[in-house]
């Protein structure tokens, strides 16, 4: 089903008409479903039109899979409505939490990777997949803090999660790069140990140095083009594991659609390169 997808773009309302008219081979679009959890109106109508022309992926930020509580039933129900309407080719979320005691905190908050957390997140993913009637992919988020109490690394945690829940994984190469920089590990080694057999999708995005602390603290801001070092990691990864649907994310300082298409073409070329085809 997803083999025909190559490189896609995160879609913003300002680019709806351009997205509708775009026709590149393998192109697809991804949106945050939370932005479409409304009763009606032009947003949903536009997404209907884009969906009629291109494959669509729903990439959630608010299921709060790593919270010490099950996903909110009303939020899950609203997600199900969107999935039934738009029939997305991919559905994904994060290994993070964002809703706690009825308040939404718009970020991907961290969790200590303990055995207890693995059981809890597995249970939450299974609840989601049961409610939606399909597998989701779970993404590695960016990291900024040296949490105490980790009992396993992220690769082992996500591998356990995929094996226990049957979920797929979304490997965000930019998040690996940012986390490696901030927490002091080798991003290439991290990617080498990642359980790539579960990876259904790859994300790429731009980051920025913290305004106060500079390059010592990188922020996964989605506000800039993908960095050269992230492109290099991505090309190496795809050359090793073969092509996977790959998304260019951009959420801030949105450039012209053509600029994003150019970035997307770069990923498309890497996915179509002989090295990727040999690894497939």
């Amino acid at each position: 089903m997803t083999h025909s997808l190559t490189a896609g773009l995160g879609l913003k309302p300002i680019h709806f008409p351009h997205a509708l008219a775009a026709s590149a081979a393998g192109l697809w679009f991804e949106v945050h479903p939370e932005n479409y959890m409304v009763a009606g109106g032009p947003r949903l109508a536009w997404l209907d039109r884009v969906r009629s022309a291109h494959p669509l992926s729903l990439h959630g930020v608010a299921l709060s899979l790593a919270a010490e509580a099950p996903p909110a039933p009303d939020h899950l129900a609203r997600l199900k409505v969107l999935i039934d309407r738009f029939e997305p080719v991919l559905v994904s979320e994060h290994l993070a939490w964002s809703t706690w005691r009825g308040v939404y905190y718009p970020d991907l908050l961290p969790v200590a990777r303990t055995q207890a957390a693995l059981r809890r997140v597995t249970d939450n993913v299974q609840r989601v997949q049961d409610a939606l009637g399909r597998a989701i992919a779970v993404e590695n988020p960016a990291h900024y803090l040296p949490l105490a109490g980790h009992e396993m690394d992220e690769a082992a945690f996500l591998d356990g999660l995929a094996r226990r829940s049957g979920c797929r994984l979304l490997l965000d190469v930019a998040n690996v790069f940012v986390a490696a920089n901030n927490l002091g590990f080798d991003p290439a080694a991290c990617l080498a140990s990642f359980p790539v057999e579960h990876v259904a999708e790859i994300h790429l995005a731009g980051h920025m140095p913290d305004p106060e602390f500079g390059g010592a603290l990188l922020i996964d801001s989605h506000s800039t083009p993908v960095a050269p070092a992230v492109w290099a990691l991505y090309a190496g990864l795809v050359g090793r594991i073969g092509p996977r649907p790959t998304l260019i994310e951009r959420d801030e300082d949105i450039p012209a659609f053509g600029d994003l298409i150019a970035e997307r073409e770069r990923a498309h070329r890497i996915l179509a390169a002989p090295a990727a085809r040999r690894a497939a």
């Binding site: 718009p106 803090l145 603290l217």
Partner: peptide, 19 residues
Amino acid sequence: ALAGLPGFAVYRNTVWKGW
């Protein structure tokens, strides 16, 4: 202890900026 680290401010700033 974490809340005093620069990395915690990234989360705090992102949440408040989002709201």
